[in-house]
Design a protein around this nucleic acid. Sequence first.
RNA 1: GUCCCGUUGGUCUAGUGGUUAGGACUCAGGAUUUUCAUUCCUGCAUCAGGGGUUCAAUUCCCCUACGGGAUACCA
Length: 477
Amino acid sequence: MSNEIRVRFAPSPTGYLHVGSLRTALYNYLYAKKVGGKFILRIEDTDQTRYVDGAVENLLNTLKAMGLEYDEGPDKGGEFGPYYQSERTEIYNKYVQELLDKGTAYRCFCTPEELDKMREECKAKRLDTRYDGRCRNLTENEINEHLKNGDKYVIRLKVPKEGEITFYDVVREKVTFQWDTVDDQVLVKSDGFPTYHLANVVDDHLMEITHVIRGEEWLPSVPKHLFLYESFGWKPPKMCHLPLLLNSDKSKLSKRQGDVAVEDFLNKGYLPETLLNFVALLGWHAPGDQEFYTLAELEKAFSLKRINKSGSVFDMEKLNWMNGQYLRNTDLKIIAEYARKYFEKAEYHIPNEKHYFELVDIARNRIHKLDEVTEFAKPFFGELEFSDEDKTILGSQSAQTLFKFWAENIADSTELNEELINELLKRSAQELEIKGKNLYPPLRLALYGSAHGPELPTIMDILGKDEVINRFQKLIK
RNA sequence: GUCCCGUUGGUCUAGUGGUUAGGACUCAGGAUUUUCAUUCCUGCAUCAGGGGUUCAAUUCCCCUACGGGAUACCA
């Protein structure tokens, strides 16, 4: 065994990658990069009842889109495979037999109905709802009797009844549990598949994982896991429990209160760079005020020691702001490429690359998510729609004079450029005595469908000479 | 109910035994811009409460309150 640091991201394939999981994956990845270790992906698919078609593929794709590359994993291989827990049942069987032989695990023949009843009774008495251990000390004969009858059973961990356990978590530091509050956890279900607890410990050991970096919801299970390591005679990895990501009401971030799937964020036009940057700062921060980080910078700056203890609210407003920043400050070429699919989806045909770039460039200053780009670009594609109020403005005497003047002059010109536009603007004011409020808003309304928006030269350039004339012509009565 | 964890403005956070407690988002006002957006400036607002320890506590300790997580043959 080497001294290499090995960490893992071990999601269960529920159909999509949760943003909270993204952060867990990111922290694992960053730590591995920081210390020159290995980052492993393992699929925890031991629950057959929750099988979702295509979930793993989806997970892998999302991880890839986010740029979190792993060193070993399902589609990548590695010397510690297989990386699907569903393909490792024989391994778990072997180890659970060892526990059975050692007497730190036992067969439990209680039916789900019995267990429910037990729990109800405990609740009624306002007691802890742990398993009462009635199968803990069955005699050999009793066990054989059950087996002979073909009774279904699970295998439970025989946790100590007395004393306490103290361990050191990288984030929480010292944590202590009394053994009499720890349940006899089910290790193997009646369908023969292991539960998370068994599979996780066995795999982390076999895969030589040195640091378990995962969500805080696992903290209460640590005593069971540690007891498993001890029972096997294995050295446990370092524990590192991350604070939770929260809804705005401070409950654990959930689907009910908005998007949590990374792919949904991606589809809405949040950049992978934004998501990574944003999520990295939820629960971790380097000393100082820097809040824009590339992945490479995060790899350098990251440290487990600086992970916060308290949960953090996932603030959409700030995410939107940050995405806007990335939209504006990332190379235009990259943004234009990301934007392409939204134009395709809206069926906006892009006639001219130069104008497309120009369009994306002015759009990126006004939007926060890339999916808003089509709404912004809409006036450039297809017919404009006017409200009654707009129509009043467009039909006014001065507006009509203006449109005729512009349509004629542009038609007579050889080229529609900024110089000409500025000249016409000046002449409108001088010759027609139309200026200010009566000049700009009607023109922009006529060409862009709104009194507010991009600068006139930009609008006209993107539209092109013919379309500009056409739009004026249509409004002239 | 029981066990565990947590608590710096509304939100994300920096920081310290002695600081005017710093930055960012949001919000409000202003400047720039023909408009909108961008950008810039200014402002509002915080160390959960109570006890200790100490010359001094936001910082160390304890209690309380509040919040969260876990209490499955799900992970």
